[in-house]
């Protein structure tokens, strides 16, 4: 089939996104679960609470801390990633920094907001799924945010049927196979402003290709935002109705 990707999608199609709020309401202030294709992430948020250590106390704002746990069975190979694993630490800092700038931290001085993320299954776009899950969990916890933070991946296919010398369309929302094959990037935007709060790319790509990749990524973020917003409204309505009875 010409023009279709290895999982049968077109270049601008997202994978199925399933999200849920308040998945573990007994042991966290806010929690969420998101599936993007076969990438599955669980996120718990606690706080604002008293900081766990003295160092984390900030006088004028809340501290945001983030813990990421990779399940050993989440990838194709069984790998146990400890706390000091470089990939884990990079994910933690990326998420922590992203959300420190989006949460209205000045409202909760001398307190701590803890985000803990469990990655249950990896199939490409792990960082994006983590960011989306965190946004939902923070909303569930009732922590004031500037707006939704939505993340999406995009990749530049080095197409074989490219005769006219034009660059082929970038692919939206890559899976594991595509991610390990062609250069991809993760982009996160705030609300529907199309402004980028986080951007990360690890592969080599020509600078001319970059613009298209970012543009496709941003359009994906908009779609993800729509899906997330729908779920938040549905969940809110269901809760409200339960409270009315």
């Amino acid at each position: 089939m010409e023009g279709l990707r290895n999982d049968g999608r077109r270049w601008n199609e997202l994978r199925r996104i399933h999200c849920q709020l308040s998945t573990s309401s007994t042991n966290a202030d806010g929690s969420s679960y998101i599936e993007q294709g076969f990438t599955k992430v669980l996120c718990n948020v606690t706080g604002p609470a008293e900081p766990s250590s003295r160092q984390k106390v900030k006088q004028d704002a809340a501290t945001v801390s983030c813990e990421v746990y990779f399940a050993a069975f989440s990838g194709t190979d069984r790998i146990k990633r400890g706390r000091n694993d470089k990939k884990v630490q990079e994910l933690q800092t990326a998420i922590q920094k992203t959300f420190s700038s989006v949460i209205l931290t000045h409202l909760f001085s001398r307190s701590e907001i803890t985000i803990s993320i469990h990655i249950l299954s990896q199939d490409g776009g792990t960082l994006a799924a983590c960011i989306n899950a965190t946004t939902l969990a923070l909303i569930d916890a009732g922590i004031p945010l500037k707006d939704y933070v939505c993340a999406c991946t995009s990749a530049q296919s080095t197409s074989i049927f490219d005769n006219e010398g034009t660059t082929p369309d970038p692919w939206l929302d890559v899976n594991y196979l595509e991610e390990s094959d062609i250069p991809s990037l993760t982009v996160a935007t705030v609300g529907d402003s199309e402004k980028i709060v986080a951007l990360s790319m690890e592969n080599k790509v020509r600078i001319e290709m970059l613009e298209g990749m970012i543009a496709v990524g941003i359009s994906g973020c908009g779609k993800v935002r729509g899906i997330m917003d729908e779920e938040v409204r549905r969940h809110g309505k269901a809760r409200l109705e339960a409270a009315m009875e």
Partner: peptide, 19 residues
């Protein structure tokens, strides 16, 4: 002119054009 890596985590939100 090959971009090997880009990283922007958090901070102020920036337009794609500026980036």
């Amino acid at each position: 002119g090959e971009v090997c890596q880009i990283s922007k985590s958090g901070g102020v939100a920036v337009e794609a054009e500026t980036l």
